[in-house]
Amino acid sequence: MERLRKILLIVGIPLATFHSYLVPDAANFQSPEFARIFFWHFPCPIMATLLICMGLYFSMKYLQTHDEKWDIRSSAVHELAMIFIVLTMISGIFFSRIQWGWWWQNDPRQVSFLLVMVIYLAYFVLRTAFTDTGKRATNSAGYAIAAFLPFLFLTFVYPRLPQILGESFHPTDTIMKGNLKGGYAYVTIELMILVSIITNWIYNLRSRAGILELEVENYGHDIQNTRSSTTDTPVVRRISVSDES
């Protein structure tokens, strides 16, 4: 399975990239040849959204079970989501510069995704603030649940508000109305599949590494516990309390 995935990626990515250059240049763009950034830009916010939804589920599972494996999974998907948010921002900024004339257009979608990035950066700031792993896991899971509502609003509601809809350069329903056709649709689907496979692969590696790390730590504790259980009763030292008051 692992080998098949490697082969698929080694062959698939160059083929999809090559295919993206075979489709004709997009119409109605300032630099039609660079409209191909879309193929790499589009899967990033979709993957980020999916990963954040998974993060919510893993966080809820952690709070239900207090099993650290769910926290490792939650942290892994949030890390990946952040990578995709950053990639969305970078590819979007380049697209904005090339097609719309300037790096930052204050486009509502750019702004809303920037806010999503800030919200989930706070998740990592929160994680770094706790040294105790249990408290870190519990409180960051609580934050992930609290952050999901603003995330939903910024991703799905805000860009579709009537006063925002007309202001954005981003088309809102190209796919829903079936306006993404022919070669463009095929390349988009190919890259969506490839990016999903890569994401799944990285997620598996990251969460497996985290769970192994946890098992190694627990293994050490188990040995300590076994040793301590064989010793006699613990030593109690007498302490003197000065009577200064």
Binding site: L115, V118, I119, L121, A122, V125, Y143, A147, P150
Partner: peptide
């Protein structure tokens, strides 16, 4: 930390 995590939740 409380200011840092509440501000992003309040931006929207």
């Amino acid at each position: 930390l409380s200011t840092a995590i509440s501000a992003p939740l309040l931006i929207f």
